[in-house]
Design a binder for these strands. Structure first.
Lengths: 209, 209, 209, 209
DNA sequence: GATGAATGAGTCTTCATTCAT
DNA sequence: GATGAATGAAGACTCATTCAT
């Protein structure tokens, strides 16, 4: 338990630095000097630098996974849109409460370790599958427009990620409104009926910018 | 011209390795051994490793920027949806034709160099602004549902990015259909009217997954 | 203190090699293999090779500066010639006790780093100025022949340097006698009165050697 | 002959750069770009960089050797002091007319190549010997005060060198007067009779500066 | 002869990790 | 457990020299 407390302390410090400088720019010296521990002590609690980073990454992934609930359909369950909204809010609230961890996941975790990469990859894959399953369910029940649910799932996932990246970069506005906007977008898209009229044929498009 | 050809040759080889191993895992030795040039030759054409990488990054950014056209509204212009579709198709076609470059942008470019980071950041920012302007225009003309165009722009950008990441990872299916799906999603969302009825109040949602 | 001891140890070894091979021929590998430390250890104690070299250079300059005292004129002070002799002896003794350091200053320090160059330059300049001031004082008191004290100062400085270079190169003879010779030369020059008689007019001189 | 002209041209350019930056800081690129020749051409005329440098060094050494004449004693010869003066003047004039070459010899030639070092070393040795022989001759004829002619020779050589280094560094004043000062110093030293009275005993000297 | 693209040995420097105290 | 000095593998970059055209 004492051990866990010490680990947590170091993780807390490391988190800040990783979020600020990324994995490669951050060296063990940065971490130990901020955490005020000796070099050797670091390796008493973590196998190596990568191990520490992975632990932080797992923290985000687990916390996020916890906050995204599967949709429940049934007479006693809240309306689906409410469930979606709640999911979104939990995610957004986490990102706002843990901007460093979020940053680590969103901008500094990809592309330097095959194992970490596939962890992240499979995390997103799981979420995409959850979304896809919900969509398929909704299609079956007539709540969701028939569509390629896999592609739609990625669109939803990507949209949420992007908004959240912006969120962690800038000062957050009205959270409830933001969540509502995302939700609306996912459900209704942006078009008015007038815009949809032309949607059958395909054509060339304007000119370069 | 001879010089440019040589550069291009090295760039071509480096691209493959960067796409496969990322920036940090790739060392100059990897590049020169694949390009079959001597160490010194490398530095004859590129200032350093970062310089080479940046050139590749600029290639993608420029190429993509070229392929995303501003929407033109007017009697002689194609319908907006067609223009959007054309944009999407051009982007998708590029990603499919240059999966390595795309990979470099999408997964290996972020988080290790402030300058590169802000380049990418501002590239996406420009696209987001283009989208936002189009949305604002559409809202003014009654073609687009009144909404927070900024948030919607990020949703669209993120959705497209995510689908494209998947695209560059897996074997591509029917491109035209994919483009159509993305377009539909952006315009109409996923909901049927029945799902939208519940959209006013807010609620808690089900239980953890 | 422990740290200082380690530094000193490395400095001691480096000194020998620098004196033997000069700055450019000496590489870090030479130093660490002689000092029996690992490559990384070197950089634990010195910022880089130049830093180490500069430290050695500063050692000589400081030590020499300490050994050259300003002349004191006054009833209780030793005669000026004695003070000069003492200065000379202290310098000569240092050179003999630290031939490597002396070599580093005298033959290996010039011409490869602007900063080091100006350090050495200003060190010699300070000594020249000390000499010049003493000469000016002596002229005022009638002890020194009226002359261009600046030029004379350089002559003295140069003469001493040259003798010392030879000293550090060859086995040292009778030190006291050597010091006496230098002193005599500086004070009286080499001429007998007979030679000085012809000193007014100027003329062409013999033929090439 | 054409070949010699080309060599001379390159030497002329290289001289300037070597004098400005020293041997190690100067690279072949500097030389060829200043001389406006191709890299390969350089090696057509010089075996390597060191070879080129050596040639410049030999130029100075030869030119200087030419300008220092052996003293001739005899009824028809000019007085010894005049001959010395003439030697000095020739040397000083050379240094002023070829400041770059002089710089190369005086500050950039020592300590990076055993062979070059011994060349310079033996050049100075020859001059020292010339001086020493003259002194010995003078002693025999009663023109020169009995002394350790070797040490005196080094004092003279060093004094001249030092003044000349200063010369090449700063704007030259009245050359004739300078030569006269050096000559006077070498012949008479700096002391007035009053200062010499204390020269027998030995003593401690003042206090640190 | 002239060119300049290509070469690769040589060096410095960094930094994650170990281990004796 | 804690420390921090020591380690050395790894990697970027330079530059004198060569050689095919």
């Amino acid at each position: 338990m004492e051990r866990q407390a010490r680990r947590a302390q170091v993780l807390r410090h490391a988190k800040v630095i990783f979020a600020r400088k990324g994995y490669h720019q951050t060296n063990v010296s940065d971490i130990i000097s901020r955490a005020r521990i000796a070099r050797g002590t670091f390796y008493l609690y973590f196998e190596n630098k990568r191990d520490l980073f992975q632990e932080l990454l797992d923290q985000v992934l687990n916390e996020l996974a916890t906050r995204i609930w599967r949709l429940r359909l049934g007479p006693q369950e809240p309306p689906p849109a409410d469930q979606l909204r709640a999911n979104l809010r939990r995610v957004v609230e986490f990102v706002l409460s843990e901007p460093d961890l979020s940053d680590i996941l969103l901008t500094y975790s990809q592309g330097f370790d095959p194992d970490l990469d596939s962890r992240i990859q499979s995390f997103y894959e799981q979420i995409a599958q959850k979304i896809q399953r919900s969509l398929d369910l909704g299609i079956g029940m007539g709540l969701v427009r028939p569509c390629d649910s896999r592609t739609a799932a990625y669109c939803i996932l990507g949209g949420v990620k992007e908004v959240i990246v912006q969120l962690s970069r800038q000062a957050p506005p009205d959270i409830a409104a933001l969540v509502e906007e995302i939700l609306r977008f996912g459900l209704s898209g942006v078009a008015q009926p007038a815009l949809l009229q032309t949607l059958e044929p395909e054509a060339g498009g304007g000119r370069p910018d």
